[in-house]
């Protein structure tokens, strides 16, 4: 492929309130099919970076090319069409608690549904079948009509994954997908992401807290510190010195099994 799939160039984000600089002049690129893990301390700008890519957060400066298109310059209507192709899952799952699991999964099709149908909640039969199939895929077929707030944390995140699957994404942004989960559930969720990456060829950008998870699942790792890129390379290349550089002198590595 001539051009990398995703190119981030000189990306800077300054939050107006409090003049906080979240990202400073960040540049990197991602090839199609990579599983890129972003690591760093809390507040190092991981979430902001992911949100700049689908413009949930407006970048202050810099360019982001997705498949050769500069998404930072798109009008909001065209941005919506780009967002359809970018799935996203969240640390706090961000499900609609009062809606059923399948209701939540169906919202993944909103980008493809005409506005009036969306307002009335009329999703097509094909979408409904697809939603059930995706729930089946994350192992929640029997919970389809259960309200989201009745589900456990891991189940909720799997609903989030099914919602992202509905978009048939090319790119998946995962913002600390397992931070709110216990270790065992974390692995099951990460395995679904890995499966999407391997089987469907979805490019994955995941921010993670634990280095062990990053090493286990990532094909490449970038590290942020105070909004700057401090590491970019294969998982194996992070040794003890690198680790201290990223997480500070005090830090100890914790294993998640």
């Amino acid at each position: 492929m001539a051009n990398p799939y995703l190119v981030v160039e000189n990306l800077t984000k300054v939050y107006e309130r409090g003049q906080v600089v979240a990202l400073r002049d960040l540049s990197f690129s991602v090839e199609k099919g990579e599983f890129l893990v972003v690591i760093g301390l809390s507040g190092s700008g991981k979430s902001t970076l992911l949100r700049c890519i689908n413009r949930l957060v407006e970048p202050t400066k810099g360019k982001i090319y997705l498949d050769g298109v500069d998404v930072t310059r798109l009008s909001s209507a065209r941005m919506r069409r780009v967002r359809r192709r970018i799935g996203m899952i969240f640390q706090q799952f961000n499900l609609i608690d009062r809606s059923t699991a399948i209701g939540n999964v169906l919202t993944g099709r909103l980008g493809y549904t005409p506005a009036w149908r969306a307002l009335l909640g009329w999703f097509s039969k094909a979408d409904r079948d697809r939603a059930l199939a995706n729930l089946e895929r994350v192992g929640l077929r029997d919970k389809a009509y259960v309200r989201a707030d009745q589900l456990s944390g891991g189940q909720r995140q799997r609903v989030g994954i099914a919602r992202a699957l509905m978009q048939e994404p090319e790119l998946l942004l995962a913002d600390e997908p397992v931070s709110a989960l216990d270790p065992a559930t974390s692995h099951s969720v990460m395995q679904y992401l890995e499966q999407m990456n391997r089987e469907d060829g979805v490019t994955v950008l995941a921010s993670l807290h634990f280095l062990s998870l990053a090493r286990r699942y990532g094909t490449r790792i970038i590290a942020l510190k105070d909004g700057q890129l401090v590491f970019d390379g294969p998982p194996g290349a992070i040794d003890d010195t690198r680790f201290k550089e990223i997480y500070g002198e005090e830090a100890e590595e914790v294993e998640v099994r």
Partner: peptide, 8 residues
Amino acid sequence: PKEPERPG
């Protein structure tokens, strides 16, 4: 029942 199997 708390866990319905059919769509409401």
